[in-house]
Simulated scan of single mutants.
Amino acid sequence: MSAEIAISDYSNNPTRGGVEKIRFGNVTIFKTSVGEMDNNVYLLVDERAPENSLLIDAANNPNHLRALVGQAGAKVTTILTTHSHEDHIVALPDLLEATGARHVTSIIDAKDIPVPAEQLYGDDEVVTFGQDIPLHTFLLRGHTPGGLCLSLSAADAGVSSQSLADGTPSHHLFVGDSLFPGGIGGTNTDAEFQSLLGDVVKRVFERFPDDTVVHPGHGKDTTVGVERPHISTWRERGW
């Protein structure tokens, strides 16, 4: 029997192998960091239907991820890969076999991911989990040809009006390696940089309010409001 995992309340201070959680209406968001590159993995559980949970980026340490799912009282039926970089898929074959989940990913990046997907997504589509909670998809192009990102709104998660009035954010975004505290994800050419920055501006900063929480593929979370004022600085420095 595996050792019990310590799960703490969200502090935005991830440590490798640690797990933090936050409640967002009917949804509990679990965040853990795995592997030598400290990849973030997110488990989304609708507490009304934990048997239909979703995992974002089966990056590494499959034993830890399986233990997390079990301790959360969940069954993962969908594993979503945000983009094609190898550090985000090390545990994917193991987790797919262990859970029997379907694999879904970006319609653009799929050709570069060595694990087949049952369904491919592009812009403005919907992935569901739990009791048909919708995650709205959008692509951010540049870190890879087309990273698949997700938006979970307070309305769709069943957040109460009182919770919103008390400061619960309006949205949670899961953006892979396309946006971090202090800048966009890494790119190799100016064309890729301009593409990614343009997509982040149009599909994140022009679409979501300041209180939106941004969950990246590594490290700490941030918010749209914290990052939005720095667009011109990012553009000038070119990275």
Rank of each mutant, 00 (worst) to 15 (best):
I89C: 02
G70I: 04
T99L: 05
L164H: 09
A101S: 07
G70F: 07
V159H: 10
S151D: 01
A72R: 12
N61E: 12
S151H: 05
R66F: 11
T78W: 10
L152N: 05
G176F: 13
H83D: 08
F129L: 02
I79E: 13
L96V: 11
L140G: 00
A72M: 09
P134A: 06
S151C: 02
P169Q: 10
T82I: 09
L120Y: 06
S84M: 07
V69Q: 05
G158R: 15
I133W: 03
S84H: 10
Q71G: 09
A110V: 12
P62G: 01
N61Q: 15
S153Y: 14
G70A: 06
N63A: 08
I133P: 00
G147A: 13
Q131E: 06
A72F: 11
S161E: 08
H136Y: 05
H103N: 03
L140S: 00
P116W: 08
V126I: 13
G100M: 11
I113A: 00
H171L: 13
A101K: 00
D177H: 06
P114E: 01
H136K: 02
S163C: 14
K75Y: 15
L164Y: 15
H103T: 02
A165V: 09
V90S: 07
P134Y: 08
G167Y: 12
G158M: 14
F174A: 03
N63M: 12
R66P: 00
D132I: 04
I107D: 02
